[in-house]
Design a protein around this nucleic acid. Structure first.
Lengths: 129, 129
DNA sequence: GTAACCAGTTACCAATTGGTAAGTAATCCC
DNA sequence: GGGATTACTTACCAATTGGTAACTGGTTAC
């Protein structure tokens, strides 16, 4: 974790949200707080170690809060802070751009039957000579 | 590079712009195309290897174009494609969020003289018990 | 007594990422 | 012939990141 000094605002923002899973965790919390186990289930493929690590980082950056209930078995709740909500709003345009891009990529591969493991470079990836 | 399948649009977007330096390269190209050497100078601290790698990835993703002039000594120009410009626009709110956050962090450390290497956790990073 | 529950923690290992530094290629200029 | 210029390429090494799997702790239910 470099933690600045940052060249620009985007640099600072990417430092927080750029790590693997971090944006996805934010997305999972955008509507309501979640328990640890719920996050682990929603983010299919994440390991417990990673989830904890990322949550701790986001917590240290004041993006998510962590609320522990004195229950047995344990109950811990994660949710967005005010800064986290603002960050989520700032990410909306980027998310939309990504969706439109995914649609475009789908169209690229549509219309071809059995396009599997084609070794030739796709025309849109061609390097300008 | 995982290259999908993506969980959501933000996932796809972060896959492209999440790598180290990538957002900064985008920023450097936002107003006008740049030559390789110019980028290397502007992005202080980047190694030639990294710069090339990131540029190639952004090029393969159709975010930047690469134009080679048949000159000696060589001249290569990098600039934003249409998709790259759209991506830059989508990143503006995030950049603003980052700027406001940097200001907030500056205010945190302002007012203290010789606040250097303080081992105690800052209050805004405290973990909720 | 012991199994289940939840939210972690820990140890160990593999893969990816990033840095340094030297080399390459083509041409012009002296 | 030799140096300067520009945009890379390559080899090698260190650091960071990420994965797997086993273990912990306190309480309740059987």
């Amino acid at each position: 974790m470099p933690r600045g000094p940052y060249i620009c605002g985007l640099d600072a923002a990417m430092d927080i949200v750029g790590g693997k899973w971090k944006a996805l965790i934010l997305w999972e919390l955008k509507d309501q707080p979640r328990r640890f186990g719920q996050l682990r289930q929603s983010l299919t493929g994440i390991s417990e170690k990673m989830l904890i690590q990322r949550l701790r980082e986001l917590e240290a950056d004041e993006i998510v809060y962590r609320k522990v209930y004195a229950h047995v078995p344990p109950k811990v709740e994660y949710g967005l802070t005010e800064a986290g909500t603002a960050l989520h709003r700032a990410l909306l345009p980027l998310a939309h751009w990504g969706e439109r891009r995914m649609e475009a990529l789908d169209e690229q591969t549509a219309g071809h039957l059995t396009v599997v493991d084609d070794p030739s470079p796709s025309p849109w990836a061609a390097r300008s000579a």
